[in-house]
Design a protein around this nucleic acid. Structure first.
Lengths: 345, 345
DNA sequence: TTGTATGCGTTATCAT
DNA sequence: ATGATAACGCATACAA
């Protein structure tokens, strides 16, 4: 009972099964030309020994590892968790494993070094890094397949129409009587954030509300920035009756700001977020949000990387995002109407 | 400019430098016996070619990969994020990478297969899996070093004194006038949760409050269970003036329950959590919690695994956990006192 | 359909 | 201090 119990190799399996290594190899890679009898014998031998193919050896021979790298910059924990979940689900029972590649300083050189060192079978770029062309270029140069999550829908990018989804959310608010709707925007560099802002403007324009200044306050996707931005918006007069944020964390910040100013949600103010992360269900009141199927997008990304087909199919690139209404939003009430009127200045 | 640019190998470097492969190998592993002149020549050749050692090949020869596996069961996202952060910080610039090993069904066979397949250099078991002796045994049998996070402090486990920390938190509540303090417990199987419950009882006993029934409601670390448990506690009469939960998510659930019952926090009820995850700063009001340095524990775990020293040093095993007071707790006020008195039944 | 020889890029053994 | 050669475990020719 030594602690170093040498693990069985293909040779052992071959010996037990009374066949050659190559047959075992064929079995492992489910080659079509293995007779049923052989298959059974090999299967039995593998089960008997508890044989598990060594990923390192396979990787060396195949010149590609069994790792899929999730590249992120540490922001947006909610999105990352969802994507991770989906990726892991896609890898369940398979031979792939999920390896994290944090790019704190967001430098391409870091990704390059990571690829050189670990040569993952594929790379998934999380927003906002998914927007970085230089990172995609590094992958291309290294010959590593790369999926940019949440980018414009293309053959290499599962994506959703965030612009339309945001418009739909804002439209709901308009349909329910809200007229002054504030937006807490995301980082300007972020395409995703810009799309969401555009969706907000789309909805207002469609109602002919595009003359006045947009009630847009800048944020950086953090709770603190959401709180700050909400404070700015809530000091306006007349005060907005609704605030939509470009992600859930900032929306949570808006809830905190409202509480600090003794503004009741949703009675005096509706608040909504984006992404529908777990946080949205844990606030008081629960946060309306736009559900983005990040987990399914992660799942699709891995399925694509593990298969050999080149272009992503439509089912793998088209994803629906749609508003989830929760208690943080409500039709505009008399209280809020009165409030708005009482602030004529 | 083909996308498949074959990367230089040790052979190439050896040829350029005019030495043997073995010397390159020695250089890479900073073997002591390489002359300064050799070192310089090799270094130059490596730089010239942009050579990066192939991790798969090294792994095959060394019989261990350059991965550190973080084994978890999907629960307690907050803790996992913190540990991940610390681990990644410890691996920064090094050759190790973090690979996720989710054990959804918590079966030892799953871990065994993962170890056989990917042969990680080390394994970090996250609570509550860290408590599973069978998982540790699987690692031992596979000859893989394993660190059990948050277990009893030992030479293989960075840990903190959660019992004392919880007692300290409850003591603060007692010192501030609270007498009826409810506890939302964690899963009974979890040693950590039991320790925290014990800490709660310690503090009450020390004040001679150990005669009455403990105000303990069961939870499973989820937001929903925290909400349920809080509802139970808040229906008691006299009502508790404070509720402490065994993690932040349940505490957030308690905040939601209080809001649903129109009980003001902290005026009529103090609420506190445990672990001090990011969530604690994003609730309304911000959640008092016991800070546990999960990130530093993850850091220590990786530092230990990457070094060769056998036992963990004291600095790596002793961690302080201590209460962080935020607006969700307050000295018991007249309102709450009156409230409690008005419910004599 | 199955077996044999060889290579993948690195490290370990043993020699010099 | 440095080098030749054999592993490491599996996959790919190519042959049978």
């Amino acid at each position: 009972m030594t602690p170093t119990n040498p693990r069985p190799t293909m040779d052992d399996v071959a010996r037990i099964a009374g066949v050659s290594k190559k047959t075992i190899s064929r079995f492992i890679n489910n080659s079509p030309d293995v007779s049923a009898r052989m298959r059974a014998r090999v299967e039995a031998a593998i089960a008997q020994l508890g044989f598990v193919p060594n990923a390192q050896a396979r990787a060396l021979a195949l010149r590609r590892s069994f790792l899929v790298a999730l590249v992120h910059n540490g922001s947006d924990r909610g999105i990352r968790d969802a994507v991770e979940t989906g990726m892991v689900r896609a890898m369940e029972g398979g031979e792939l494993a999920l390896v994290l590649c944090p790019l704190r300083h967001e430098e391409a050189a870091g990704l390059r070094a990571f690829l050189d060192r670990h040569s993952p079978a594929g790379v998934v770029l999380l927003p906002p890094l998914a927007e970085r062309d230089d990172l995609a270029e590094v992958c291309r140069a290294a010959g590593t397949r790369c999926i940019r999550l949440g980018q414009e829908q293309s053959e290499a990018a599962p994506a959703h129409d965030e612009r339309a989804a945001m418009a739909e959310l804002v439209r709901w608010l308009l349909d329910n009587g809200h007229r002054r709707i504030g937006l807490i925007a995301g980082p300007e560099e972020s395409r995703a954030a810009r799309q969401r802002t555009l969706g907000y403007q789309d909805a207002l324009s469609a109602r002919g509300l595009d003359r006045g200044p947009w009630l847009v306050a800048p944020g950086d996707n953090s709770f603190a920035s959401g709180m700050e931005a909400a404070c700015l918006l809530l000091e306006l007069s007349p005060r907005p009756t609704a605030i939509v944020a470009c992600n859930d964390e900032m929306a949570a910040g808006a809830l905190a700001a409202a509480a600090g100013m003794r503004i009741a949600v949703p009675d005096q103010l509706s608040v909504a977020g984006f992404d529908d992360t777990p946080l949205a269900a844990m606030t008081v009141p629960p946060l309306a949000s736009v559900h983005v199927p990040w987990d399914r997008m992660g799942y699709a990304a891995v399925m694509h990387l593990s298969s050999e087909m080149q272009p992503l199919s439509v089912e793998e690139t088209g994803f629906d995002a749609s508003p989830v209404l929760r208690a943080s939003v409500a039709p505009i009430g008399e209280v809020a109407l009165a409030q708005a009127a009482a602030m004529p200045r």
